[in-house]
Design a binder for these strands. Structure first.
Lengths: 208, 208
DNA sequence: GGGAATATTCCC
DNA sequence: GGGAATATTCCC
């Protein structure tokens, strides 16, 4: 059914959110999420009636009933690979949780049957770009000061600093513009003055 | 011929170079380079004798004679896509240069016919992980102060951010001072002008 | 050409 | 599960 769907879902229209600082919510969901959702809608029922992958009974998550067939048959129709582990890696990247030890079931609060629109609320876990390679970081908690106020509500230190810096740069640009205008006006005034000088050379030499 | 070669060239054994800081030379070349080299060895001669892609006559670079066929036939046998532009992007990442405006010819000092072993000397241009999003960077060099003591060893994210923040505030103060001086000078000039006006009211009314 | 986001791979 | 390198895409 979705034979030619693999190359669709180009995320055109992400442009506006991309360079907008703290994009609060992208206009369209990540391709990975759309493909995973669509792959479930399609169902993938086998000839014998068994399923390869499907929503769980409540529609609050999904189950890969046959990882082998899922990898060989389903994945390459939606992605550029047929590795179950790469699929899992993506699920983790987007914050899905494995919710059963007995079967391959995954859930995400915002990934629900019938709620394709909610996918926009699912974002990648952002690894904040650190200057230090992770293997040089101390694993102990001596850095606790940095993460002290733990509530995820308030913007963290980085974001606040970055936001202030962004504003400062904007302000700098405005000030530089002001200075340019100032200097331009100065030139005009000086021109004007020199014209006076020329015309009233003798009389006004010592006025200023 | 190379039907099943696509998934080979896994870079096992790169472990030792990976976590070693400035890995001086990886044990094996990047998959992209091996594939590109191999794809040239294979040749890709057409039925009619024309070539899709080949080494140049000196063996110092290669030419894609038919981008369309190269994209449709060659690329997907070695890579997970059939986009010429993605291939070009990779060439740029590894420092290849387009060496002709008339045909799709590319060269890299270390990419020579018969020298598969030299591929280990070709490395990705490393975007050194910058703390600041590029769209916040001033394009001019006014921030030179920030990278003054250039040794990349010290300073983490917070420190860099705070330092930039501090510098921005200092800069703001300087700009504000400049503006104040500018305005002060303007006032003087205007004063001066008005004195002229007063003194030569009748004569010079239309000079400016 | 290249920056940066997302995808895929590899390893811990 | 997740860090990090490489690959692919998208945009400037």
């Amino acid at each position: 059914m979705a034979e030619n769907m693999v190359e669709l879902n180009l995320d055109l229209g992400n442009f506006f959110s991309r360079h907008a600082g703290q994009s609060p919510r992208p206009r369209c969901p990540a391709p990975f999420l759309l493909k995973t959702y669509d792959l479930l809608e399609e169902g993938g029922a086998e000839e014998d009636g068994s399923k390869i992958v499907s929503w769980n009974s409540e529609g609050t998550g999904f189950v890969v009933w046959s990882p082998a067939e899922f990898s060989e048959l389903t994945l390459p129709r939606y992605f550029k690979h047929n590795n179950f582990s790469s699929f899992i890696r993506q699920l983790n990247t987007y914050g899905f949780k494995k919710t059963s030890s007995k079967r391959w079931e995954f859930q995400h609060e915002k990934f629900q049957r019938g709620c394709r629109h909610m996918l926009v609320d699912i974002t990648r876990k952002k690894r904040e770009p650190s200057v230090f390679p992770s293997y040089l970081k101390s694993s102990s908690e001596e850095n606790a000061t940095m993460t002290s106020n733990s509530t995820e509500e308030s913007k963290d230190y980085h974001e606040l600093l970055m936001e202030e810096n962004k504003n400062l740069k904007k302000e700098r640009l405005e000030l530089q513009t002001q200075i340019a205008e100032c200097k331009s006006l100065q030139m005009k005034l000086l021109d004007c003055l020199s014209q006076f000088m020329d015309k009233h050379q003798n009389k006004v030499r010592k006025t200023c």
